[in-house]
């Protein structure tokens, strides 16, 4: 952080000929070039391709190769998707899932961050390492393990529910034998488990980021508030939260982006693209584009819709945060 803030000062502070200063000014851009080139090739170019593809009817692999014409359909792909009642199900799933996951991830992550800040050094290291392990687990492996936990015959969760006293289990759930229970059968259960997996994967990042933010808050402020008789709840909302507002802003935007495009966890838990009632936008796009027969144009259009939704949501949120800062 320090180098960044000092950088612009250095050339101005030194007495240099105008010519040399100009060359120095150009240097940062030259240094950025390789990065821009890589981003351009790996990110902007494919992005442009996807947008372009969404305006054509592409249902043959040979079209991608340039062997066949690309028939222009304009907004036809978009009309087809938006007119399909199934799209409403998918959109509802996506929005509800993302909202629930962002909220839960933020709450859990913040609580763990606050806890880490209060713990002693050794305990904090221990808890942080445990939490980081969840974050470090690759999404694919982590999800496979979760799926095993919910296996209908030999999963740990099935075993735990079987271990409940029969009377209690019957009173609570209306069944005592959980072997063979379809954990993923109803969309609600499926999304609950998916939420568990996704929150488990993403809260450590929030926790660590919040902790980093907390470390920068002078402890005198908290002490002063406590001396004045504020409880933890009040301290958080009156001191911590306003000070960390930019951190929370960025974390919410990042979480929103991640939770809107969850794919790996869903693909693994649902066992592929078969469970259509639980589709969300990203898996919907994948299934339309790549399941035989391929419909690359439709898949691309869904991807563009997902991107637009994300832009709107994050744009609104960023504006809200900025406005609050001005008001404050």
């Amino acid at each position: 952080m320090t180098t960044l803030t000092q950088a612009p000062e250095t050339p101005a502070a030194r007495e240099t000929p105008a010519r040399r200063r100009r060359r120095v000014d150009r240097l940062p851009y030259l240094l950025l070039l390789p990065c821009l080139a890589i981003i351009g090739v790996l990110l902007l170019w494919p992005l442009g391709q996807v947008v372009a593809m969404s305006f054509f009817r592409l249902d043959n692999v040979r079209q991608l190769r340039g062997d066949r014409d690309w028939p222009w359909v304009g907004l036809g792909n978009y009309a087809e998707i938006l007119g399909d009642p199934f799209f409403r199900t998918v959109l509802r799933n996506t929005v509800l899932f993302a909202a629930a996951n962002v909220a839960l991830t933020m709450i859990l992550g913040t609580l763990v961050g606050l806890l880490l800040n209060r713990l002693g050094k050794r305990m904090a290291t221990f808890v942080a390492s445990c939490v980081m392990l969840a974050w470090a687990t690759p999404a694919l492996t982590g999800t496979i393990v979760w799926k095993w936990l919910f296996d209908d015959t030999s999963g740990l969760v099935t075993w735990l529910f079987n271990a409940l006293p029969d009377g209690l289990s019957n009173a609570l759930f209306g069944r005592a034998d959980w072997t063979g229970y379809g954990w993923f059968n109803s969309p609600l259960m499926f999304f609950s488990i998916l939420t568990l997996v996704v929150v488990w994967h993403s809260f450590p990042f929030i926790a660590v980021s919040v902790l980093a933010g907390l470390k920068s808050v002078p402890s005198e402020l908290h002490e002063a508030a406590r001396v004045d008789g504020a409880g933890p709840w009040k301290v958080f909302w009156k001191i911590t939260f306003p000070l960390l507002r930019p951190v929370f802003g960025i974390l919410v935007v990042l979480s929103t982006i991640w939770d809107f495009k969850v794919f790996t966890q869903q693909f693994v838990l649902a066992g592929g693209t078969q469970d259509r009632p639980t589709f969300m936008l990203s898996i919907y796009s994948y299934a339309e584009a790549f399941s035989p027969p391929p419909k690359y144009g439709l898949g691309a259009a869904i991807a563009v819709i997902l991107t637009l939704i994300l832009l709107v949501v994050t744009g609104l949120y960023v504006r809200m945060v900025l406005k609050q800062e001005e008001d404050a």
């Binding site: 063979g180 059968n185 469970d275």
Partner: peptide, 9 residues
Amino acid sequence: APPAAAGWN
């Protein structure tokens, strides 16, 4: 067969 069979391949 158990309810979980709904998801079995």
